[in-house]
Design a protein around this nucleic acid. Structure first.
Lengths: 247, 247
DNA sequence: CGTTAAATTGAGGTCGTTCAAACTCAGTGG
DNA sequence: CCACTGAGTTTGAACGACCTCAATTTAACG
């Protein structure tokens, strides 16, 4: 994580942190705050880690581009994926209290991250009421999102909810505003791990969704053709659930 | 929620909020901060609501005693339980951003809550570095706990993890420091709903755990007799999992 | 003591897992 | 340029964990 680390003055007022951390248009104050907060920027290649579990924790991070997976290893060395981070997301919030990173985070795509020392964040929040509120609201959203994929759900619902979650998150900072597709940054293996399903099940449900014209997958790109129906499935009020389509 | 609401000066320095919000011993400053924050106290009977989803949100709450369930109703009117709150927990964090309560919260036991206006909290955090950090750490813990019961798990693991979660939480502010039992504040129905299992499955697993001398249930009180084995089951490295005991 | 909610127990069916094998495709080297 | 490789994905068949439905027992509370 040392290489590819730069001291940088952030000019961009369309970058994810600016959009995410300030509700409305990026103001002068917003840009100032961000430049105060973010001391370093770092670019990670696929497979590189931002941090490992048990390391001492002094910074939080904001993902500006790319995708990362957060995971922990159990005593057998099995990986359990806890979270996927997308642009605009804050990393390492859960580790603030313990001052050790609780999870490991690895880049699934080339990713750009902003590094924010916790102490800087605290000091800045003390000075800026706007930042304090904005940070609180972002955490509020984060907690809210944990109910997106409840444990109650069956495979179809989970995968539908997962796709919608990714789709919605990517919509906030789309590379191309008009594009109706997105590429899944993670493997079906990782999706299965995250959702608590067998990877074969993920494959089968993707197949089922395509057969029912909910979406199309070409070259790792997902075209959602019926977002309403997909949402219906996620929320358990849908034809596909009742008309049992065998996996 | 209007009745049983009091303006109160909090003297108690052993109450959950004081222990929870201040890492170390309750100091004079801690007590002062709490008295600044908490403007009202409220006592709820079983079945009473603290708030309902979609209501305007101006306060957060701290549960000082009792137990509450947080849930949402889907369009069919089915209840989905999202969280159980125990003493020391902060309520309504997920609703700060939207300024509307996203869930409803109902008391499962007679419960005492502290009412903290969001604006007061923000102002106090602006003034007190200790409070700002402590609040951040509590949120950090909260996010951390969402990984306690991952979706990967089977029924036995989930229920074991659930029991441990409740047990650990209650250990922080035990009514009686030496007691080796606790009473589950919620019905098996609610547990099943929360964990995404059939209530019959919950009953069967409880039976199985008792048959294998992990715990004993008498008069709604749970005596955990083998916490280590229970933890092993929760973490998927256990005899009970491999030696398949049929439900 | 009677009413109602909660918990238990059994039997059958289903969804998702597990195991196994084949296929795709990008990357690598001959 | 093509064969080789290995990770990721697809597909099939059989098993098993959990659900559903139904009936019964127990507990809770006025």
């Amino acid at each position: 994580m040392k290489k590819n680390q730069f001291d940088l003055n952030i000019q961009c007022d369309t970058c994810s942190i600016s959009t995410a951390w300030m509700t409305s248009q990026p103001t002068l104050e917003a840009t100032e705050i961000i430049n105060t907060l973010v001391k370093k920027i770092s670019i990670l290649d696929i497979g590189e880690h931002i941090y490992h579990q048990n390391e001492n924790m002094k910074n939080i991070f904001v993902l500006n581009s790319g995708c990362c997976k957060e995971y922990a290893l159990d005593e057998d060395g099995n990986e359990k994926i806890n979270h996927f981070y997308l642009p605009g997301d804050i990393l390492a919030l859960e580790s603030m209290a313990s001052k050790k990173y609780i999870f490991s985070v690895m880049a699934l795509q080339q990713s750009q991250i902003y590094i924010i020392p916790c102490e800087t964040l605290f000091h800045s929040m003390q000075k800026s009421p706007i930042l304090l509120r904005q940070f609180s609201y972002m955490i509020s959203h984060r907690i809210q999102h944990y109910s997106d994929i409840p444990m109650t759900t069956n495979a179809k619902q989970r995968i539908a909810a997962f796709l919608i979650m990714i789709f919605d998150k990517l919509q906030v900072y789309p590379l191309d505003k008009e594009q109706d597709y997105f590429s899944l940054p993670m493997s079906q293996f990782d999706i299965a791990n995250f959702l608590g399903l067998a990877h074969e099940t993920v494959s089968r449900v993707f197949h089922l969704f395509q057969k029912n014209l909910l979406l199309k997958i070409t070259n790792k790109k997902i075209y959602i053709t019926d977002i309403q129906l997909l949402k219906s499935i996620a929320h358990n009020r849908e034809s596909l659930h009742k008309t049992k389509m065998t996996l």
